[in-house]
Amino acid sequence: MAKVIVMTSGKGGVGKTTTAAAFGAGLAMRGHRTVVIDFDVGLRNLDLIMGCERRVVFDFINVINGDARLNQALIRDKRIGELCILPTSQTRDKDALTKEGVERVLEELKADFDYIICDSPAGIERGALMALYWADEAVIVTNPEVSSVRDSDRILGVLQSRSKRAEEGAEPVKEHLLLTRYDAERVERGEMLKVDDVLEILAIPLLGIIPESQSVLKASNLGQPVIFDEVSPAGQAYADAVGRFLGHSIEHRFTRPERRGLFQRLLRRTA
């Protein structure tokens, strides 16, 4: 049975799309048939992050409206055959996502895929509610920063009251915390909330810690999910997180600053 996973956060700019792209690629690299859907109607960006922006002909809304068939809109990744993306529309019509339409597309996708990743827009409006409504599992993408933690708490409340599982009284949506842009050096200096602080406040299981890394911007510049960058800490951290998601027991890394020589430390401190 296909699993629906939502990448959500409430706050914008914390790394939902980066995470959706990395997770989609990571699951597909392990042989799972995976589709990533962009729910951010009007602000299409998943195609750009995944490097298939020039191959978009039809989109999610075309399929919902019956203007295109699903397999005309699905874009198969050129690097991994198991991976597809369903881009969203650039329309400004806020009501383009209908509950019946989204449900029909998801049902159709369930027949062909193992994992359906819903990349949520920021906020708690229609697009975000649609992205999380059918979720079996949720990855809450959070930065170690007050406004992001507050918004994550709010979106957890929405998941627990407005998802299909909540409405039907079924088993609750399984929640995972993914802490992104983590800077272990600033944490050590007491300038940034540490993992344990965020875990204590949000009280949901930790899926992974993605360190602040230059490779994330580089990956988006090139349209390559950062998980392909196997030497970068962020790429490795995403690979670990995907492994944990699949049930493997992998120790958390990148929670401590890299040890530097005395010379480098002195240079940095005085800089």
């Binding site: 709010r154 909330l193 406040i201």
Partner: peptide, 21 residues
């Protein structure tokens, strides 16, 4: 440290927001 202030402010705020949300 400012991180301690951040944690305390969040804990107070969220305790209040959760009861009304």
């Amino acid at each position: 440290p400012s991180a301690t202030a951040a944690k305390e402010r969040l804990q107070i705020l969220l305790a209040h927001e959760r009861s009304t949300a």
